[in-house]
C-alpha cells in the first residue's frame, strides 16, 4: 500500500477525457477535457446547464461509451469495455413489468458473477437479502407487487434497491429523482443518504437540482455548457447526516447560491 492519508489513490480517475458523437465534420463534442478523480467511498455530484454532457460522463465512467480521447481509469486500469460491479439508476426506473418488484431487485444477482453461478442454490438467501433491502427503503410489503402497481416514488426506490443489491463499489445515478414530485424527491434524498452512510459505496450523481447535489455530495463538479468542461470543483464539508432542516441553514444556502451563480455565468 502506497496510499497516504493526504492523497489516497482515486478509485475513478478521468484524465483529459473528451467525447464526440459522430465523426468528421458532423461530430458534436459533448464533453471536453474532463479531468476529475473520485476517492473510494466518495459521493460526488455533477451539475451544470442542460446538454452539458453530464449523462455522457456517466456512460464514460462505466465504459458504456468509449472516450474519443483521454483516459478513464477505474481501479488503476484503463476502461475499454463496460466495467463490472457498477450499479446504475436512471430517471426512468426501467423496471421490468413482467417481473415482480422482488424479482426485479434480484435481477443483478442473476447476471453478475459470482452470484450468477450460485443463484439457484442460494435463491432463498438472496431473496431474503432483497426483501431486507426493500424493507429498508419502506417497501417491505410490496415485494410481490408488480412495478406498475407501485407509485413513481416506490418504483424509484425499487430501482435503487436493484442498483444496490449486488453491493457494487460504484453507483451511477443519472437524475434518479428527476421525474418525481418535490416531496417524494426530498424524502428519497434521505433514503439515498441513509443507504450511502450504511454502505459507503462510491457514488456519481448527475442532477439538475442544486439542493439535491449539496444535500447528498461530498464534492460537486460544475460543468460548462456544451462542450462540457469542469469549471468548478466544490467540496461540501457540511456535517452528516444532513437533514431537510439543514437545507435551510445559511451555510447550505450559501453553497447553493455559489453554485447557482457559477452556472448562471454559463448562460451569460
Amino acid at each position: 500500500m502506497t496510499t497516504t492519508a493526504a492523497a489516497p489513490d482515486p478509485l475513478v480517475e478521468l484524465r483529459a477525457v473528451s467525447l464526440a458523437y459522430g465523426r468528421g465534420d458532423g461530430a458534436t463534442l459533448a464533453l471536453a477535457d474532463a479531468t476529475m478523480s473520485i476517492r473510494k467511498g466518495e459521493f460526488i455530484a455533477v451539475v451544470g446547464p442542460s446538454g452539458c454532457g453530464k449523462s455522457t460522463l456517466m456512460k464514460l465512467v462505466t465504459g458504456l461509451l468509449p472516450a474519443t480521447s483521454g483516459e478513464v481509469i477505474v481501479h488503476g486500469e484503463t476502461v475499454v469495455r463496460p466495467i463490472k460491479g457498477v450499479g446504475m439508476a436512471f430517471q426512468n426506473p426501467t423496471l421490468m413489468p413482467w417481473r415482480t418488484t422482488l424479482d426485479n431487485v434480484l435481477l443483478p444477482l442473476e447476471v453478475v458473477e459470482p452470484h450468477k453461478r450460485q443463484f439457484r442454490a442460494r435463491k432463498a438467501e438472496y431473496a431474503a437479502k432483497a426483501k431486507a433491502l426493500l424493507a429498508s427503503v419502506g417497501l417491505g410489503d410490496f415485494a410481490e407487487k408488480y412495478p406498475w402497481q407501485l407509485s413513481g416514488g416506490m418504483q424509484q426506490r425499487s430501482n435503487l434497491c436493484r442498483a444496490l443489491i449486488h453491493e457494487p463499489e460504484i453507483m451511477m445515478l443519472d437524475e434518479p429523482f428527476g421525474a418525481l414530485d418535490a416531496f417524494t424527491r426530498e424524502e428519497l434524498w434521505g433514503v439515498m443518504q441513509a443507504l450511502w452512510l450504511e454502505r459507503k459505496f462510491t457514488a456519481v450523481l448527475v442532477t439538475h437540482d442544486l439542493r439535491e447535489a449539496v444535500y447528498l455530495a461530498d464534492t460537486i463538479y460544475v460543468m460548462s455548457r456544451r462542450p462540457g468542461r469542469v469549471v468548478l470543483k466544490r467540496a461540501i464539508d457540511l456535517p452528516r447526516p444532513r437533514t431537510l432542516a439543514s437545507t435551510f441553514d445559511p451555510a447550505f444556502v450559501d453553497i447553493v447560491h455559489e453554485l447557482r451563480d457559477r452556472i448562471h455565468q454559463e448562460y451569460a
Binding site: 458504456l64 463496460p82 463490472k84 457498477v86 426512468n92 443483478p108 447476471v111
Partner: peptide, 10 residues
C-alpha cells in the same frame, strides 16, 4: 436504458 442497465451489470 434497460440495455444500459444490463450492460453495466456485465
Amino acid at each position: 436504458e434497460m440495455r444500459d442497465v444490463m450492460r453495466s451489470l456485465g
